[in-house]
Design a protein around this nucleic acid. Sequence first.
DNA 1: CGCGATCCGATCACTATCGGTCAATGAATG
DNA 2: CATTCATTGACCGATAGTGATCGGATCGCG
Lengths: 257, 257
Amino acid sequence: MIIAKRRQRIVETLRSVGVISVHDLATQLGASEATIRRDLRSLDASGMMRRTRGGAVMPGALTYEPSYAEKAGQLTAEKNAIAERALELIKPGDSIALGPGTTTLCLARLLPRVGELTVVTNSLLVAEALTIANQIEVIVTGGMLRRSIHALVGPGTEQALHGVRLDLGFMSGNGVNAERGLTTPNLLVAAADQAIAEACRQIVVLADHSKLGRVTMCQTVPPQRIDVLITDASPDSREFRTLLTAGLDIRTIHSGS
Amino acid sequence: MIIAKRRQRIVETLRSVGVISVHDLATQLGASEATIRRDLRSLDASGMMRRTRGGAVMPGALTYEPSYAEKAGQLTAEKNAIAERALELIKPGDSIALGPGTTTLCLARLLPRVGELTVVTNSLLVAEALTIANQIEVIVTGGMLRRSIHALVGPGTEQALHGVRLDLGFMSGNGVNAERGLTTPNLLVAAADQAIAEACRQIVVLADHSKLGRVTMCQTVPPQRIDVLITDASPDSREFRTLLTAGLDIRTIHSGS
DNA sequence: CGCGATCCGATCACTATCGGTCAATGAATG
DNA sequence: CATTCATTGACCGATAGTGATCGGATCGCG
């Protein structure tokens, strides 16, 4: 058995079953476990699969993919604090939009406190979170499901938002900087975010410190359209001051507005 | 059993049943409870699920709302069997519609087996369940969130379905009888169901025995438009024969078509 | 409020797995 | 034919995962 062939078989097997152990592979391919380990190490390094103790997994198959969940678990305290701060901007009776993202999801979970509200969202998780809030009218835009962010994008989303007018929009993204505003790496997601932004009179951007100063491919909201930026970054940080001098209304989780 | 595989199985199990105890998992996976606890702690930390005393729950799944969860817990085996039967009607490449309901949700969980598919749905739970199926293009209709069934209804839903044409529609309801067809007690839900039915070339109704013969307020699909009815009711029952003489193509979970 | 039952986290001994090293094999090359 | 080099499998110390056990926390019940 030639080396390339064996590795190809490993990838094929992994693709079909999602996860496999070193022992099984060794038996199945008639090689020693040491060899399989070497193969797996190499394949892992080249990004063909992910190595785990005792075997390997194929990310993206039916297996559990920690990507989104991991992100959701990170900086939870900060995100909650940002959401608390955002909540102060919302009055009973408002109609608001919530974009996709873990921080907006945190905010959604706090919304029942406000009372009567109308919420428009393209995030399945936000909608699901608001299922328990009887006083909130929830409207979901249609669209194609984008798995990585559990949200709806595409022409359906934009059409659903066309002609709608809301008081406040709460959005997140992958980066905020003074020059480009809010940016996101994906075109479809960006288009959906833009549609949300257009439907809202005022726009509030929620961004933890890891996003401040970062720039990714597509602009979703230009800096001059960001009415309020809520973040947990330190007011002393360079990015913070750059944004401040750009004229943004920044609010932190620490002190008053 | 390697770690990755065990944890994957835990997540899969949890995704399909919503709640599970440490003891059950240990028995089912042949591991000690200590190991399962460690797994759950890790999965909880990464946000894959939420840990509870004695077990774990899947957030965003049916577990939150007791009323819906209760319904979902009932007749699970029967509903799964009905879903398996329905799966036989689907070919790779088909475009299908899935209405709200616990039985259609069961079907959604089986769809990854088929391969490439386009699925249109107004059920948040169906959409969420299909998040893991990479080969399936999922399109969600927009609309107002109806909490009790975790689905979207209203003008937005109808508009999104207008002009769409699909191969197969899988629908459920609160009652099926020979005279009135598929019926549901709520006007908004009925309108959404009608819109789905109109968009589909063929309609398959999934109904467990508790729904057979029942009639509720609004008709969603007239009997002559029901192409296939899949049920777990006994072919000897009165309702079954009434429907049969009405000319419906009925398939049961027990025998061949 | 007290009680028994259950569940949890921490600890510890045991085992499986891992990475590294090294010798053996075999193909390619001069 | 001798040499070189890549690959392989075996061995070994290090380490991570496992299961049993125990004290303490929590829950449900009367």
